[in-house]
Every structure is written in C-alpha cells, then in structure tokens.
Design a protein around this nucleic acid. Sequence first.
DNA 1: GTGAAAGCGCTAACAA
DNA 2: TTGTTAGCGCTTTCAC
Lengths: 336, 336
Amino acid sequence: MTFQRQQRPATQADVAREVGVSRTLVSFAFRGTSGVSDETRLAIFDAAKRLGYRHNAAAAALASKQRTAVGLYLLDLRNEVFSDVLNGVRLALPQARNRLILSVSRSIGGEDQGALDSLIEARVGIIIAATLLDPDERVRELAQMVPVVSVTRRVEGVDSVYPDDHAGARAAVEHLLGLGHTRIAHLAGPQFDGHTVRREAYEQIMRSAGLTPQTVAASDFTHEAGERAAAELLAGPDRPTAVFTHNDQFALGVREAAYAMGLTIPGDLSLVGYDDSPTARLHGIDLTSVDLHAVELGKIAGSVALERLNDPGAPIADRCITPQLVVRRSTAPSAS
Amino acid sequence: MTFQRQQRPATQADVAREVGVSRTLVSFAFRGTSGVSDETRLAIFDAAKRLGYRHNAAAAALASKQRTAVGLYLLDLRNEVFSDVLNGVRLALPQARNRLILSVSRSIGGEDQGALDSLIEARVGIIIAATLLDPDERVRELAQMVPVVSVTRRVEGVDSVYPDDHAGARAAVEHLLGLGHTRIAHLAGPQFDGHTVRREAYEQIMRSAGLTPQTVAASDFTHEAGERAAAELLAGPDRPTAVFTHNDQFALGVREAAYAMGLTIPGDLSLVGYDDSPTARLHGIDLTSVDLHAVELGKIAGSVALERLNDPGAPIADRCITPQLVVRRSTAPSAS
DNA sequence: GTGAAAGCGCTAACAA
DNA sequence: TTGTTAGCGCTTTCAC
C-alpha cells in the first residue's frame, strides 16, 4: 500500500484562485492582518484546508526579511544538562517564537563551526548556544553575523547566562575540605576559553587552604573521557581521597573507574560532581553535586533572547546564577 | 562594548558586483558547479569573505524547489533513547544532507501536531520521527504531505524502523519466569496506536504460562509518571515479585518507588527495563534491560530516509530489528 | 475591503 | 567560461 504524494504543494495563489480573491487577501488572512472580511477569511481557510495548503515559513521569512526562527545550539544531547536547557528555553519562548531550529555539535571535544554554520544559513534570528567551545573572539565574530546568547559560559560583549562557577567550585571544594580531605583532585574538561573557571577556582581554593591542587583534564566532556582520565588518576601514586569533577558525566566516569578498581564510594573515595543531573539523584548513585539550575538557565536565556530580538541595541545582558551544592551520599569524612 | 551588526547581510549580487561578474557565476561557484574558471572562483570566494557573505539556505531551497533539510522529530530529549537515535541518524547522513532540523515534542503524554507542523512549514524533505504518538491514520496523512520514517514504531504504509517488541518482551518475561517468578507485573505506557506491542506480548506470554497478567499504565513516558504508577502498584495487595517495564525511565521510577517503600532490588523485587540506556549500565543501577539498539535504529532510519529521498516511489521500507536482553543485577530468583 | 505590482535571495534553463 | 532571463512562494507598499 503506497500513498500518493501531491505533485505540487498548494500555494497561496492556488487558494486565492479557488476562492476567487487575490493572493494578498490569502496572505493577510493567514497572518491575521486586519482588513479581511470575516466571510472572506472563512472562505479562505476552508479552501486552504480543502487544498491541503501549508504555510511556507521559508518563503515567508525571505519575503518579509524577518528572521523569525530561534536557533538552539547544544553541545551534547547525551548530557542531561543540555536537554534541561532546551526545556527551559522552550518554557520562555511564546508560542509564536517557537520555531526552534536545533543544531547539535558533532564534536564534543572541540569547536564545531559546521553546526553553527547550518544555523546561520538557515537564517535564524538569534542563536542560543549551550555550550560554545570556540575562543571568545570567534564567538564575538559569530555574534556580529547573528545575535548570540551564550549559555553556561560568559563571553565579554555577548549576551551571557551562566552559573557562578567560582561559587559552585568553592562550595564543592569547601565541602570536601570540611570533611577533612586534603588530597582532593580535580577532573577538568579540555581547556577551552570560558571553561576554566571551575578549575581555576578549585586550584585557588586549594592553594589558599595550603594544599597542592592536582588537576587532570579529560579529552572531551563525555562520561567515557572522564572514565579514562579517572582510571589514570586513580592508578597513579598518592591516590586522592576525594575528586571534584567538572561535570556529572565525569563523576559517573570516576565512579565506574573506581568500582572497576575495587574502590568504594564514599568509603575509599569521596566524589562531587557538577550539574546535579537527574541521574545524580537516583538511589544507588546518590551523587553529591553542584546544581547549576540548567532549566532556569534555559528559561533566562530564552527571555534574554526575546529581549535582544525586540531591541537589538539593548545593552549586553550578563546574567549570573548562583549554583547550589546538593550533598548526597557520595561524600564522607576522610578516613585518614 | 557592543558589536555593530551589519545593516544588510551581503547577497550573491553584492559579491558579483564586487568581483565584476554575474550573479550566476557566484551561485555556481558556491555550489561547486562546473563551469567557473579557477581564477573567477577564487576571486569570488575572496570577495565573499571580505563582504561577510553567507549562503542563504532558505532562499536556495525556495528557488531550487528542493527540499534538502531533514526533519527529526523526537518525543523526549530526557530519554536517552532519543539522543541515541539522533546520533545514529547523524552517522548515516552524508555531510551534504546534514541540514538537520530538530523538533522536540512539547507533550510527552500525547499527540503534538505543533512540533510536526513546524517541520512541515520549514519544508523539510523528509521527517524522521521517533516516536510518534498519533494514531496510525494521522501518521499516514502526515506522510502524504511529506515522507515520514517512523522509528521505534511500525506504521502500515509508512517507512518504519523498529525493534521486534514481541521478541523483546518475550525475552524479558521468560527471563523472569525462568527465575521462578509468577506474580510478574507490567508497567505500560499510555496506550497509543503502535505502542501496545510490548504490553500485548507480555499479557499473551503470561497467559500461555497459565499466569494472570497485571498491567498498570503510566500517564506518560517519563520517569516521574513511572514512579507514580509504580508507587500505586507496589502499595496494592498481592504485591508482584517482579516488574517488567515499558522503558528504562519507568524502571528507574520503579526503583525509586521501591526504595522509598523500603523494598530492595532484586531482593524483594526483580526489575526488567526496556531500552538498555546508558544509565542502566551504571554501577549501582545495574538494570536488566532489553537493548533495542537505539543507535542502530537511528542509523537505519537515516539510510532509509536517504533511499526515500532518492526514490520517492520505492516500496515502503519495513525494517525490524531484533532486540537483546541484557541481564544485570536487578533480577534474581523468586524468593517464594 | 480588496487587488496589482514589485521584490526578497536564490537557482535554472538557455543563450552567447 | 560567462551572462540573461524568468521564476520559487511569499510579503508589502500603494492604489482602488
């Protein structure tokens, strides 16, 4: 059983012909512009339905020179943070603005111009990006072509919505210090512009506590990369008694690496993640983590995007959200 | 510090004027069409760069009447199955076809015409949908407007790529039967067209084993809905000793509900999920689950989409993948 | 309340 | 190898 597809999708001209009015009227009717009699409007809708007419958003955007769609760039869909951001963005956007074009990075380990290009070429009106790995300068260049709202990362000169990573890292490290840990390691991500705050805060706080920071960097931001880096870290000499990771994916990687070596958590190793993803909350995982309020970040990003769309000349938005440490059962007093 | 945006984005006409050639040449140069001298081509690229020219995909699609973009409809980003499908699709699509427009449902509990409409109005060439909740008839109507590849669900008359849910459910239930369980409950999703196979298979297999099926249906496909349904199920009389759930999200919900009641897994309750999501594999979760090979489903869907695009008249694809039970530590012999 | 005509940025014959 | 011309489906003055 096959279904024959219409040869040529119906256009406004077809509808106009069917009803016996001009194309203009049809266009007006569909956009709710005043100046169409109710009678005509109804007749148009009726004919449209009969003909299976569908509004062509691309053609409309071209003709009106309006960039109506919102582009959403996400680094990695497997990381729950990004789906939360998406959900937040959607909550903030009104129905009308809900033409969301999503683009997901192909490379979690580095820059990815391709995904952004596709958004630019789709002529979106604004790009909400979580998380850009490109250098600040590149982000600013991008922002000259199309407005950008940077989420989870602050970029000077570009609308930014991000967590106070210094405060977040401080809460995490101080929690571990308070438990008596001294050999606290940090599992960082690859060091891109704007993604070093957690690491720097960790190192600074360790130093002010008179301790030596020990940082290892994973090759990208995935669970797997975290696990590889953790395996090395834990196998090394002077194994840390606690690890603070750049994100929850890494923390899950550390868990797997630790268990694979026969270590227990928090018995042999205390663990603090970052994101407070849904997985962290599961019984059996119970990961202590820094909640960066991803949904909230998304919501704010959405509203910032709307403001920018309405007023291209408005001052740059700089919205910093305070994250919150959520203590669960992956951390315990130091045994030593 | 603000960055001035260009008033009017450069067009091919601007580039042509700059170089002193016709618009056609510029168009040719950008699409790699033969018939442009290397010298001209280079001059064009150079000028384009200088002017900040960006190809306008929307205008190009309009003019060429080609529907180049691929629309991807996903039910729920928080469910790892769907990100896996996305990743699979992307693996299958060649670079050129990688203009992926993603649309995520707003309602995990029911139909969602809005998300599909936005894909239609964006004039995508094909929609890869995972998972459609609409009635079969509606999906077929949709497929008349634009080709559809239905993923994780078989729809008669529409290209479909899906797991053999009967076999998957059988493997799960027989595993539990083999462990000596007799009071095996099933946590089903809301009963939409095409989403009843797992449930029906469960009930049929229970009956052929001379047992009484006990099915409860959650209100949508999320962890939370699963947890609510599970709380009721486990609090009821004649508590089951094993639960087989429609998906892993539900299984995670059952876990939480069980632990909240002081039950242990698999001590008091054996649990089998469906999806074999990354979370299922975590130490501390160790969920026995039916692997439906989501990445593979996505890959096949991508290649089916390409075939359909190349040959609109080809026979309907019907690709059924055999899922695989992965036994972990959430199932144990029945105590009774 | 309605329509005619021009044009959005691009592609696609067809000429030259 | 290059240019000319005519649209794609829609919006938008501006006139009736």
